[in-house]
Every structure is written in C-alpha cells, then in structure tokens.
C-alpha cells in the first residue's frame, strides 16, 4: 500500500543518514570550524620539497583511510550486505573512490580553494611534487562545483549511497537486485528533496561520467607514477589501495 511504501522509504532514509553519520570520518562542524586553518608558506614548501614517491605514498594513505570509511558506510546500508559478495565487491571497486570524491566537498573550502589534508587546509600547489597537476586541478574543480550545490549532510548521504549502488556497473551478477535497491534509494532521495523544497538540485548533480573520468584519470596517473618508480607501489603503498587501483 502507498502508506507502507512510504514508511519503508522513511526507514531507508533514516538508515542511510545513520550509516553516513557513523562513517563520515570528519564531522562537518569540525571541518567548518577549521576551514581557515591553512598551511603556512613554510609548511607548503616543505610538502613541495618532498620526493614524489613520498608524496604519492602519503596521498595513497589518506585515500585508503577515506575508502575504509566508505566500505563501512556500504556495510551499514540496508540491503547492501544482502547482495551477493561478487556484487558488493564490484560496487565498491567501481564506486568507493567516487564516493570519496563526493565526500571531499565537505572538506573543501570553496572560498580559497583549499582542501583538508593531514590536519590543515591545503591549496592545489601543496600537491606539486605528485607531478600530476591536471588531475589535482580537475579534482579541485570538481569539489568547487559540488560546493556550489550547497549540499546538506542528508543530501551528501543519499547522493553518495546512489553513487555506490549503481546497477550500471559492469560485471554485476544480479543486476536486478542492485537495480531494486538503487530504485529505493532514488525514491528516498527524491522524497527528501521534495520535503526540503530542493527538487532543483536533481538537474544540477554532476553527470556520472564526470566522476568516472576523474577516477580513470587517477588510475592513469598511478600507472605513469609506477613506470617512473617501479617497485615503490608494491613496497610502500597500502595493500587496499593496490588492490583497488593497481
């Protein structure tokens, strides 16, 4: 009946919000409080002087930490653990980095184009020694464009659940089951937007291709780094990072 469907959707929404709150890594209030706490010129120079391998290793470490929270988010999402293991892995392998990029907009200060990194806010120039200027610029541009949407915490929660539960990912075994869950999350998102008079957001969301392109760009840069520094990836990068991207 329409009523019980409504109750179901409300339960799902509450589950997504709770799962997100429990796994958001950094609280929005804390990020907000520290948004003008930027690295000093000397600190930026110290990062810029780091060898490329060390900077890559640091960034891989921070990405891996963020991904572990996304895995916990997925595990708490109602219905996710009912999918077969193949599909859980397919969705995480394809979507974890995309969710990290979406979550990053919370840790981004669009007023001075800085992102929270290792305890303070950092501009794109801090990442210079990575040797992938274009990728960093694209990620900063993406964060800037998401910030312009003024996402609420509930919107980030539901949007990231939808980025993760995507029935169009290749290699799914039970695509219909993923599509059902995706459909319920989609309804939950639309109900939330209607309730908060934010339906206009739907037309302004980034197209899925944009997230996919950023993730491919990351993998391409990793391959280029690997050619320059053979062996470093295996010796010094987190195993989960290697498993997902190498």
């Amino acid at each position: 009946s329409p009523t019980s469907a409504g109750v179901e959707i409300e339960h799902l929404t509450q589950n997504v919000l709770k799962s997100y709150r429990e796994t958001c890594q950094l609280r929005a209030e804390d990020l907000q409080l520290r948004r003008w706490d930027t690295f000093s010129r000397e600190e930026v120079c110290a990062y810029q002087r780091k060898p490329m391998e060390e900077m890559w290793q640091r960034c891989a470490g921070r990405i891996t930490e963020a991904i572990q929270y996304v895995v916990e988010f997925a595990k708490r999402l109602r219905g996710f653990m009912d999918l077969c293991q193949n599909d859980q892995i397919v969705l995480l392998k394809a979507g974890a980095m995309e969710v990290v990029l979406v979550r990053m907009c919370r840790a981004f200060n669009a007023d001075n184009r800085t992102v929270f990194f290792e305890g303070k806010y950092a501009g794109a120039e801090l990442f210079r020694s990575l040797g992938c200027h274009e990728l960093i610029s694209s990620i900063f541009d993406f964060a800037q464009s998401l910030c312009a949407l003024h996402f609420s915490e509930s919107e980030v929660a539901l949007f990231s659940a939808l980025v993760l539960v995507n029935a169009n990912r290749p290699w799914l075994q039970d695509q219909a089951k993923v599509a059902r869950l995706q459909g319920h999350l989609d309804v939950a998102f639309r109900v939330l937007l209607r309730r908060t008079r934010r339906e206009g957001l739907l037309a302004r969301l980034p197209p899925p291709g944009r997230l996919r392109a950023l993730c491919s760009q990351h993998v391409e840069q990793l391959q280029a780094f690997r050619r320059l520094h053979p062996g470093v990836l295996h010796a010094a990068f987190p195993p989960l990072y290697r498993e997902l991207f190498a």
Binding site: V71, I89, L92, L240, E243
Partner: peptide, 16 residues
C-alpha cells in the same frame, strides 16, 4: 575473489 582479498576481509568483518 583472491584478487580482492582485502576488500573481502573488510566486508566479512562484522559492522565494526
């Protein structure tokens, strides 16, 4: 599955 050993392990470790 062997290729995704760590992801597997993380998924199987209860809701920690």
């Amino acid at each position: 599955q062997e290729k995704h050993r760590i992801l597997h392990k993380l998924l199987q470790n209860g809701n920690s």
